[in-house]
Structures are given as structure tokens and as C-alpha cells.
Design a binder for these strands. Structure first.
Length: 205
DNA sequence: AGCGGGATAGTCT
DNA sequence: GACTATCCCGCTG
């Protein structure tokens, strides 16, 4: 039920090693739950625990930008090594993914929700108008805004400052279900490739 | 539940 | 250079 991080002082913020990403995309989607995502900017540092992810597994996944091995300027980073940042813009929002899978395999994990940890006043400021902490990071477009993640982070190694992952907590229980917002993706619509920390109140829905 | 915002990239002519 | 679709959000009813 509760994330196992009541003793917040026990968290050591330190970039995880690059080898962490050497696992299948579905495994990584689950392993990222509970990790701390940290972003340092000149305004200050913010961080939050990942509580919701989605897997996008290239060429056979109609919901993925890299479906059919579509290799363009935008998707290029997905064909590279695991552990790099894939950002893209949708309407007014920037979304952040972690590249996964082997070289030449265009796969990624979308980070859909965070539980705010440090730098909460800065998050609140960036999410101007939002008084409820839940609304700062409970969606993929919201969390990038709160964290100050932009297209400038495209291609950045997510195991090095100023944008990196750190060990956080181990989820007590993980739930799994259909992905969100891909109603037009044929059979891929129903793949159960969304994962979240069971019962966490920052999960998008 | 519906809709418009306003930013790309990709696909065409 | 235009047209179109989009891994969303916040607001209106």
C-alpha cells in the first residue's frame, strides 16, 4: 500500500550505473518503479519517485513511434543503447522516455507519473495554479513541466547529471494493465504494458 | 464527455 | 509549403 520510503533520510541520491539498463524492456518498465528521477537546473533541483511506466516495444508495436522500424530524426535515439533519454513534444507537452533494449532495437519506457520528493516548492511554482500536490506530477506531460524536462534533454544519458536516475524504494506490489491514450493503435491497444505502484495516489488514473 | 490549445515531425504535392 | 496525426492537459458542461 504505502511506498517503502517513510524514512526518507535513508535515500542516497547518486546516479545509477549504466549497466542497470541491460534487461528487457518489460523488465525495465517494472524495475524503474520506485527509482528516483532527479533533474538539476539553474532554478534548483527537483526529484520524484517513478510510480507509473509504459513499455513501447518497437518494430512490432503499433503504438510505438518506432513501429515497423521507422527510423527518423525523432526516433533515432531509440535505436541506440539503453539508458538514454527520448523526449518528444505532443501539443503543448513534452514527454520523457528511457531508451531500453539492445542496440538497433528501438524500444523505450515512457515515464507516466512521479511521486514528488525533493524540490517541491519549485515543482509547485512550475505547475502554477495547481494547489493539489497530486496534480504536479500525475501525468507524463505534467511531470516534465514540474521537473523542467524539455527537448534539450533529448539524447542525454540518464545515468549522469543534470538528469539522472537514483535508487529509491522497492515497490511492495506492482499492478499491470492496458496502456493509455493509444486507442488508434489496432491490436496493440490492448497489450498490458502499463505498470504502476499498486495503490500509489500519484498514478495518472 | 467533449473540445481546443499550439508544437513538433512525418508525409504528401 | 500545405496538411495531418499525436504515448496530453485543463477547462467547460
Amino acid at each position: 500500500m504505502h511506498p517503502d520510503h517513510e524514512n526518507e533520510k535513508s535515500i542516497v541520491v547518486q546516479p545509477i550505473e549504466k549497466d542497470f539498463f541491460q534487461m528487457s524492456t518489460l523488465e525495465l518498465s517494472k524495475s524503474l518503479l520506485g527509482c528516483l528521477l532527479v533533474k538539476e537546473t539553474k532554478e534548483g533541483t527537483t526529484s520524484g519517485f517513478i510510480v507509473e511506466t509504459e513499455a513501447y516495444i518497437g518494430p512490432g508495436d503499433r503504438a510505438s513511434h518506432s513501429y515497423g522500424n521507422r527510423r527518423t530524426k525523432r526516433t533515432e535515439i531509440m535505436f541506440g543503447e539503453a539508458g538514454y533519454v527520448y523526449t518528444y513534444v505532443m501539443h503543448t507537452h513534452c514527454l520523457v522516455n528511457v531508451v531500453s533494449g539492445e542496440l538497433e532495437k528501438p524500444e523505450a519506457v515512457l515515464i507516466r507519473a512521479l511521486e514528488p520528493f525533493s524540490g517541491q516548492s519549485l515543482m509547485k511554482e512550475r505547475r502554477k495554479g495547481m494547489t493539489d500536490i497530486k496534480n504536479w506530477t500525475n501525468g507524463p506531460g505534467k511531470l516534465t513541466k514540474a521537473m523542467g524536462i524539455t527537448m534539450e534533454d533529448y539524447g542525454h544519458p540518464i545515468f549522469r547529471p543534470p538528469l539522472f536516475l537514483s535508487k529509491g524504494f522497492i515497490p511492495e506490489s506492482i499492478s499491470q494493465g492496458k496502456r493509455i491514450g493509444i486507442e488508434n493503435s489496432g491490436e496493440a491497444r490492448d497489450y498490458p504494458w502499463r505498470f504502476w505502484v499498486t495503490g500509489n495516489k500519484f498514478v495518472s488514473r
